[in-house]
Write a protein that binds this DNA or RNA. Structure first.
Length: 296
DNA sequence: GTCCAGGGTGAAA
DNA sequence: TTTCACCCTGGA
């Protein structure tokens, strides 16, 4: 007898570094030893397991009338190896070893609204806390992620009670905008990266970094190069960007270098920087990356 | 107990 | 261009 709630997808993907390292705030590893993640995909509660060159998905709860296979496959984005300009990355001394280490890392195409709320929430916070806040929003709304209208009825005061702090009015603000302009998100999808970014940055609470994250991780605009403090340090350290360059200028410069594959360049640099700092926290060197191009 | 930083942003100096 | 407040939490 087969379990109707289980299905397989023939994709070879690094779940940990794709689902659970900063792009998305929906996933929780179910145990330290497994390679299984649990979370809501749209409003369907599932577990995803990384098996030998394929994924096994099980529906646990929530909305069930969904074409999970094709929608989840779309969510997982595209294999970067086949994207235009990938050789720019594999020929890069700094990035090449990271690709070798994380060959199955992907950039997601997340549901837009949830991604927007997530990254506004991320400002000056940390991963566990962001995930906790996003979970609270679902719990408040019968385990469906509240749409803009529902966010408005929750209201700023309640959001502050939940711990969103200074981010609460920002979330209300964009909920109002989207609630008033029904097609806003679809329009952003249609226009160029640059126009979409200009539009997002006009919204109070969304600056350059958050706009870039949203465009890269849910709008499939891979020209985007989000610069946070880790990536900024990486660019300065490995690419000799000026020591006092500001994040926006650094992002411009990086986009200029990596063009339409910038978001992947950013992910690899992010992972490299994280590993390097983790290694130094252990008091050791990161041997795998101790190559001649490593400056200082 | 105090201090500080955590994938930022916006307003004022 | 630089500085600072904004919420809240956990660790030093």
């Amino acid at each position: 007898m087969t379990n109707m709630n289980k299905l397989k997808i023939e994709l070879d993907i690094d779940l940990h570094n794709t689902l659970d390292s900063g792009q998305s705030f929906s996933w929780q590893k179910i145990s330290n030893t497994s390679n299984t993640y649990k979370g809501y995909f749209k409003d369907t509660l599932i577990t995803v397991s990384e098996l030998n060159k394929c994924l096994e998905i099980e529906i646990i709860g929530g909305v069930k009338n969904i074409n999970l296979k094709s929608e989840f496959e779309n969510y997982l984005g595209r294999d970067p190896k086949y994207l235009d300009g990938f050789d720019l990355l594999s020929n890069d001394n700094i990035i090449n070893p990271v690709i070798k280490m994380y060959p199955k890392l992907r950039i997601l195409k997340q549901p837009k609204w949830e991604c927007i709320v997530g990254f506004i929430t991320s400002s000056c916070s940390n991963l566990p806390r962001i995930k906790y806040h996003m979970k609270l929003l679902r719990e408040l709304n019968n385990y469906k992620f509240p749409n803009p209208y529902e966010i408005l009825s929750i209201g700023e005061i309640k959001l502050r009670e939940l711990g969103f702090g200074f981010r609460a009015p920002y979330i209300i603000n964009i909920a109002e905008k989207i609630n008033n302009e029904n097609i806003y998100l679809d329009e952003l999808d249609q226009i160029s990266y640059l126009k979409a970014r200009e539009e997002l940055v006009r919204v109070k609470g969304i600056g350059r970094k958050i706009a870039d994250c949203i465009l890269a991780y849910s709008f499939d605009k891979l020209e985007s190069f989000p610069v946070d403090r880790h990536v900024l340090n990486g660019l300065i350290r490995w690419y000799r960007f000026p020591k006092k360059i500001n994040p926006e200028k650094a992002s411009d410069r990086a986009m200029n270098k990596w063009g339409n594959i910038s978001s992947y360049a950013q992910q690899y640099i992010f992972h490299r920087q994280r590993l390097a700092s983790r290694a130094s926290n252990w008091g050791g060197e990161h041997k795998k990356f101790a190559i001649s191009s490593d400056i200082n």
